[in-house]
Design a protein around this nucleic acid. Sequence first.
DNA 1: TTATAATATTAAAATGATTATAAGTCAAGA
DNA 2: TCTTGACTTATAATCATTTTAATATTATAA
Lengths: 145, 145
Amino acid sequence: MDLNEKIDRLKKEGITLTIQRYAVLEYLYKNRTHPTAEDIYHDLKKRFPTISQATIYNTLNLLENYGLIQEITAERGRSHFDYNAKPHHHFICRKCGRIYDVDVKGCPLVGKKTIDGHKIEELRVYIIGICSECLEKEGREKNEK
Amino acid sequence: MDLNEKIDRLKKEGITLTIQRYAVLEYLYKNRTHPTAEDIYHDLKKRFPTISQATIYNTLNLLENYGLIQEITAERGRSHFDYNAKPHHHFICRKCGRIYDVDVKGCPLVGKKTIDGHKIEELRVYIIGICSECLEKEGREKNEK
DNA sequence: TTATAATATTAAAATGATTATAAGTCAAGA
DNA sequence: TCTTGACTTATAATCATTTTAATATTATAA
């Protein structure tokens, strides 16, 4: 879903589109690296010196509640955020902390409505390990010895 | 894996089994409700009035590092812990916060070693929604009106 | 447009989970 | 018994997030 579409959705819900809210959503649109609230705050502060952390969090919570973004709770203590709200899987590197989107074909949970009588509303799949880049780096370091 | 087996593993690794460490592991063994560190601390304090939060966290981190327990990072800000370290899926209720073990048949990720060139070490699947108990309660409340 | 009400943002303080620190305790081996 | 090292404790520190109260902005209606 592109930026304008999400903005239209917000407007349709009666949410006023403030400069700050637009900036946060646009930031996520342009930065698909799954940033944290702190990342967003740090970067937006350059353009909006008076923006506050509360606004970042309020906006992220708002966008999440309307299903326009996705929260990633793979790391202990801090959340990351993803512009792409559609159900998809994430790989998290234990070494470098990078988060990759991965496509898992044939996941029986995608599209499923209930499980064991529970109503499914959201799916979070975190695959944790060592990413290909870190594996390569490890390999190189071993060879150098 | 039962309690004695995990304790043997620890001993084999040269980890000294203190009363506190035993108590934490035993607590998880007996309480399969996926408690938080705070839950464990609160309950163990009754039997061990001088136990400290640091010990709870140290022990949980230690047990996790040796693959004897599993961390659940589905809730923003706080972790839950699971005696069962084998890969399995969790359902988290948005209403009551309860965490259920669920069995997903045919998950293509279970047992998989790599994905997109990344090395898989751990899998966390969180299915979020409204649990059957809360759904029932909702239904009853509607009928009463 | 202007006044008013409603909503959003800000800065700062508060909270809650987790980790770090430093001092104290304990057990095993010299 | 003394020493060493590992473990636990209490406390303080840190980090992410939320709350609060004041201010600013936006929407609404006259």
